[in-house]
């Protein structure tokens, strides 16, 4: 009887082993990843249908704010350019805005504060599964876009960052113009009524109400308007996208 049981057990484990080995081979193959990745387009289109682009993320109350807003990824960019700015409390910081715009600009935090701003208490959802709630104050990205004048050919806003993820591999991200113009899309300079701390992306980071954490670029140095992001990084629209994560991070 125990022979039979151990045989069944081995057969069961063998079946699972074959299944998992097969899945691993599919995960490594170009076709397999493309087929499996086809769900991203479906998610993006169906979610846009069910949750319109104008829909607002829930905003929470002061009582809901996380005691510690967990900083993830880079918490201290080591690049000399960033270190020099940090040494002077970012007083010399200027956000470069260029690409497909009519009036390229260099904007200090004071310049940004002069544009329309917004304060919101929203939830941050990491692709890993955890969530944190923080109070963000920042300039509406739409106000910055209006300030520089977006060319009709521009389709995406690319955020170039100070932090290097690897040698010559700076963090970057991108969103489409519609997401960029959403009223909860901010270039945040304050977290919980304090100047944005370095671990959370000082002096300026992106806040999106309805996408996962890896889209919310920290340490932004430059905003570029482009018609396509194919020539940036590995061409997938962001550092994590280049590592295989979905460009559409609404789920």
């Amino acid at each position: 009887m125990s022979d039979r049981r151990s045989f069944l057990r081995m057969a069961g484990m063998g079946a699972v082993g074959i299944l998992l080995a097969g899945c691993d081979r599919i995960s490594q193959s170009g076709l397999g990843t493309r087929v499996l990745g086809s769900a991203e387009g479906l998610n993006r289109r169906v979610q846009a249908l069910l949750s319109p682009s104008s829909a607002m993320a829930k905003e929470y109350s002061e009582a809901d704010i996380s005691p510690v807003f967990h900083p993830n990824g880079t918490t201290m960019p080591g690049t000399p350019a960033y270190q020099a700015l940090m040494a002077n409390q970012f007083r010399d910081y200027k956000l470069q805005v260029d690409g497909l715009v009519s009036r390229p600009a260099m904007l200090s935090i004071a310049d940004l504060k002069a544009l329309d701003d917004r304060t919101q208490i929203t939830r941050h959802d990491c692709v890993e599964g955890w969530s944190a709630i923080g109070k963000w104050r920042g300039t509406l990205l739409s106000a910055v876009l209006d300030h520089v004048g977006v060319s009709p050919q521009a389709a995406f806003v690319v955020f170039h960052c100070f932090d290097e993820m690897d040698v010559d591999t700076p963090y970057y991200e991108s969103v489409d113009i519609r997401e960029a113009r959403h009223p909860q899309t901010l270039l945040a300079f304050e977290l919980n009524d304090q100047p944005l701390p370095v671990p959370n992306g000082a002096p300026l980071r992106l806040r999106l109400g309805r996408q996962l954490g890896y889209k919310q670029a920290k340490y932004i140095s430059r905003i570029e308007l482009v018609s396509s992001f194919e020539d940036i990084g590995d061409g997938k629209g962001g550092y994590w996208e280049d590592q295989g994560y979905e460009w559409y991070a609404g789920i």
Partner: peptide
């Protein structure tokens, strides 16, 4: 032996999950 892919690989796990969710 209980995860797909077997190695720690979140991006690929999500692809499998969302594809088969549909």
């Amino acid at each position: 032996w209980l995860t797909v892919p077997s190695a720690g690989w979140l991006a690929m796990g999500r692809r499998w999950h969302f594809f088969f969710a549909w």
